[in-house]
Simulated assay, not measured.
Amino acid sequence: MNTAKLRSKRVIVAGVALAAALGTGGVLFATAAQADEVTGADRDRVGNAAVQTVPGTVLDVETSDDKGEAFEVDVRKADGSEVSVHLDKDLKVVSQEQDDDDDNDGAGGDGPDTDDRVLTAEERASGEKAALAAVGAGSTLLDLEASDDKGVAFEAEVRDASGQEWDVDLDSAFAVVGKTVDN
Rank of each mutant, 00 (worst) to 15 (best):
A4E: 14
S8P: 04
V11W: 00
I12R: 05
G15A: 06
V16H: 02
L18Y: 11
A19H: 07
A20H: 08
A21I: 13
G23T: 06
T24D: 01
G25Q: 06
G26T: 04
V27R: 01
A30I: 02
T31Y: 09
A32N: 11
Q34Y: 14
A35G: 04
D36G: 06
D36V: 04
T39D: 04
G40R: 02
D42E: 04
R43D: 14
Q52M: 05
P55T: 05
P55A: 13
G56P: 04
G56I: 14
G56Y: 03
T57R: 11
T57A: 13
L59I: 07
D60A: 13
E62K: 11
T63I: 13
D66S: 15
K67H: 09
K67D: 15
G68I: 10
E72A: 11
V75I: 07
K77S: 03
K77H: 01
K77W: 01
D79I: 12
S81W: 00
V83N: 00
V83W: 01
S84K: 11
V85Q: 00
H86L: 15
L87S: 08
D88C: 03
D88W: 00
K89G: 04
K92M: 10
V93Q: 15
V94A: 07
E97H: 04
D99H: 00
D102V: 06
D105T: 08
G109I: 07
G109F: 08
G109C: 06
G109M: 10
P112F: 12
D113F: 14
D116Y: 00
T120S: 12
A121K: 08
R124F: 05
E128A: 05
K129A: 15
L132D: 03
A133I: 09
S139T: 12
S139K: 11
L142Y: 01
L142C: 03
D143A: 09
E145K: 09
S147Y: 01
D148G: 10
D149N: 05
K150Y: 04
G151K: 10
G151I: 09
F154R: 15
E155S: 04
A156W: 00
A156F: 00
E157N: 13
S162M: 02
S162I: 02
G163H: 01
Q164R: 03
E165F: 03
W166N: 11
D169A: 07
D169L: 12
L170A: 07
D171V: 12
S172D: 11
S172I: 15
A173L: 10
K179L: 04
D182L: 03
D182Y: 02
D182I: 02
